[in-house]
Design a protein around this nucleic acid. Structure first.
Ligand SMILES: [Mn+2]
Ligand SMILES: [Mn+2]
Ligand SMILES: [Zn+2]
Ligand SMILES: [Zn+2]
Lengths: 126, 126
DNA sequence: AAATTTAATGCAACTAAATTGCATTAGCAA
DNA sequence: TTGCTAATGCAATTTAGTTGCATTAAATTT
C-alpha cells in the first residue's frame, strides 16, 4: 500500500488542500479542475489521498461529499471524530478542532461518528 | 398550514411510520410502496409529513435521506438534535433518545446539528 | 346525491452525483 | 531508452432526487 505516482493531476489536487485548511466539496473541486482533468480523475485522486490519510471526507448538510486536509495532529486515522460546520449563508464548510463527546450507548458498538453543524459562519455574521 | 387530504397513499405511508419506530430510507420506502404508488408521490408525501411535524429527516452514513417518526416527547420542532445510529452490518438506522451536547463555538451561530453514529447494532452483536 | 373545487397523483422527462469499462497515456524503475 | 502498469480520458451507465403537466379523487358546496 502507499504506492502513489506523483502525477500532474495529483499534484494539482494536493496543492488545493495544502494551500488552505478549508473543506471543499467534490462538486466544487471538479469544477475548479475542469480545464485540467476529468471528473473521474478527481474522484479517483480523492480516493487515493484519503487512503493515504492525507485527506478525510464527510457529508455536508445536503448529503453531498466534502473533503478536507487532515491536520497533522488529528491524523488518528480511525477515531478522528471532529465535527464540521456548514454555513447556511455562504455555503462554506470548515473542520472544527474540537472534540464532541459521544456517550456510550448500551448494546451499540460505535466505531465512527459524523457530526455536521449548520448555521451562520463568522464571515457571514454581523 | 396543515391542510392534508387523507388519501389512500398518504395513509399507507403514515402506517409504515406508525407501525414501527425504525427509521426508513427513502430508497427503501419507494421500493416498499412500488406496487401502490409512484416514487414522486412518496417524495411528496414525505415532504408533507415532515412539514406537519409527523416525521423528521436526516442523512444516513452514505449521504442518503432517511425518515423516522417524530416521537411524542421529541417534537420540539426546531431544537430536535437527537443522534442517529446506522449499523454497518445490517444497514438499519435508529433514532437515539439521547442528547448530544454541542458546545458553543466562538464566532459561529449554530442553528442545527446532524449527528450520525456508525457501528454495530444490538441485533448484529454477539 | 350530483356538481364543484383543487389537492394530490401518475408519468415521462430531466438533473446531477457518483461509478464503470475500456482504450490510451504517462510515471517511474530497470 | 525501454517496458511495465498505475493513472487518465471519455463515453456510457446508475441512481437519487426534481419538475411540468395532464388526470384523478378527496373534500366541500349545492
Ligand atoms: Mn474535517
Ligand atoms: Mn430520529
Ligand atoms: Zn458563511
Ligand atoms: Zn445491525
Amino acid at each position: 500500500m502507499g504506492i502513489i505516482r506523483k502525477t500532474k493531476s495529483l499534484k494539482r489536487v494536493l496543492d488545493t488542500f495544502q494551500k488552505s485548511d478549508a473543506a471543499i466539496s467534490v462538486v466544487q473541486l471538479i469544477d475548479n479542475m475542469k480545464h485540467h482533468m476529468n471528473k473521474t480523475t478527481v474522484y479517483r485522486i480523492l480516493d487515493r489521498l484519503k487512503q493515504e490519510g492525507i485527506v478525510h471526507s464527510f457529508h455536508g448538510k445536503d448529503g453531498l461529499k466534502w473533503y478536507a486536509k487532515c491536520s497533522d495532529h488529528s491524523s488518528h486515522q480511525n477515531t478522528d471524530t471532529h465535527p464540521h460546520f456548514h454555513c447556511n449563508h455562504c455555503g462554506a464548510v470548515e473542520c472544527l478542532p474540537i472534540d464532541i463527546q459521544i456517550p456510550d450507548i448500551p448494546n451499540l458498538q460505535i466505531s465512527s461518528a459524523e457530526v455536521i453543524l449548520a448555521g451562520i459562519c463568522s464571515k457571514c455574521n454581523p
